[in-house]
């Protein structure tokens, strides 16, 4: 067996190449998911890269990413499979025409029925099955990365319905029986915790909590994503965002917003932060007027502190 630590570092480096900077903790989760063949439940505040993680994994392992966005009212017909009704109707028409030939020369009702039973019935068969995201990932030959996004938005029933898929990598279609995965997909479930996820689901998953990155990691992320930003400004802006997260806000800025802000500053040819610049671009970071008003009075202090810390 290869050394786990080495494997984990490899994953981390692989992610870094595709522009996803992560800490060891996250890489460990991927390593475990691969080896234990268990789904990962990813939780954390919005905008820390939960969905990105699945994308990066797909890219790193060179597997197709199959994404299922959850919402209230999602059911198995939309997530798993649907019958091709149109084709099925046509099939019955064709069948009716062929039935005459089949029944020719049959004596009595019993023999007709026997012949009918002998007839190959494909009405409910895989040919008439329209695969949706979950079935697609089970059917993919060389494995896939399945992302079930925002599982907390779906209904309880759907959560229960996922249990079979998550623990056995198989699903049951009543008309066909059980369909097993050709090769186990790597499954990510993400949740923003708008409601508590059931224990049964949690038990079947590895649980990864991604918090907001610390200053070091965030600086690295900015370096990877917006390489144009100069070192000094980068430190300043990360420091500012970090201190912003300490405040009591309705919605704290996420990593994606830090990246957006960095791009904004580049666009404005900014070389370093000053209060006026920050005030004008604050709407990139904060999305509630209340928050912007609240921060406004402290803006000067925050900016100076961030600039001083970066020295």
């Amino acid at each position: 067996m290869t050394e786990p630590r080495a494997e984990i570092t490899k994953i981390q480096d692989g992610f870094a190449q595709s522009g996803y900077i992560c800490n060891e903790h996250i890489a460990t989760a991927i390593f475990l998911a691969q080896n234990l063949e268990k789904p990962i439940l990813v939780e954390g505040p919005p905008g820390v890269g939960k969905t990105e993680l699945a994308k990066a994994t797909a890219e790193f392992l060179d597997l197709p990413l199959i994404r299922l966005q959850c919402y209230e009212g999602l059911d198995e017909a939309k997530a798993l499979y649907e019958w091709k009704y149109g084709k099925q109707l046509l099939y019955t028409q064709v069948l009716k025409e062929k039935l005459g030939d089949l029944m020719e020369g049959a004596n009595g009702l019993k023999e007709s029925m026997d012949r009918l039973h002998d007839f190959d019935d494909t009405f409910f068969s895989e040919e008439f099955l329209e695969p949706r995201a979950l079935l697609k990932s089970l059917w993919s030959e060389h494995g896939s990365v399945l992302l079930i996004d925002e599982i907390d938005k779906s209904d309880d029933e759907f959560e229960a319905f996922l249990l079979e898929l998550l623990s056995e990598y198989q699903i049951t279609v009543p008309e066909l029986g059980t369909i097993k995965a050709k090769s186990s997909p790597i499954v990510f479930l993400t949740s923003n915790n708008t409601r508590e996820i059931g224990d049964a689901l949690k038990r079947r998953c590895l649980h990864l909590y991604i918090p907001f990155p610390d200053a070091d990691l965030e600086t690295k992320i900015i370096t990877a994503r917006v390489p144009e930003v100069e070192e000094g400004l980068r430190k300043q802006l990360v420091g500012f965002v970090q201190s912003l997260r300490e405040l009591e806000l309705k919605k704290v800025p996420a990593v994606s917003e830090t990246i957006d802000w960095a791009r904004t500053l580049i666009l404005l040819h900014a070389r370093e932060l000053d209060t006026e610049l920050v005030r004008n671009t604050l709407n990139v970071l904060l999305k509630f007027q209340d928050d912007i008003d609240n921060v406004d009075s402290e803006l000067n202090a925050l900016t100076t502190a961030a600039v001083a810390a970066a020295e």
Partner: peptide, 9 residues
């Protein structure tokens, strides 16, 4: 890291 992902949810 590994144990925390399996045990603490």
């Amino acid at each position: 890291d590994s144990l925390s992902q399996v045990l603490a949810k």
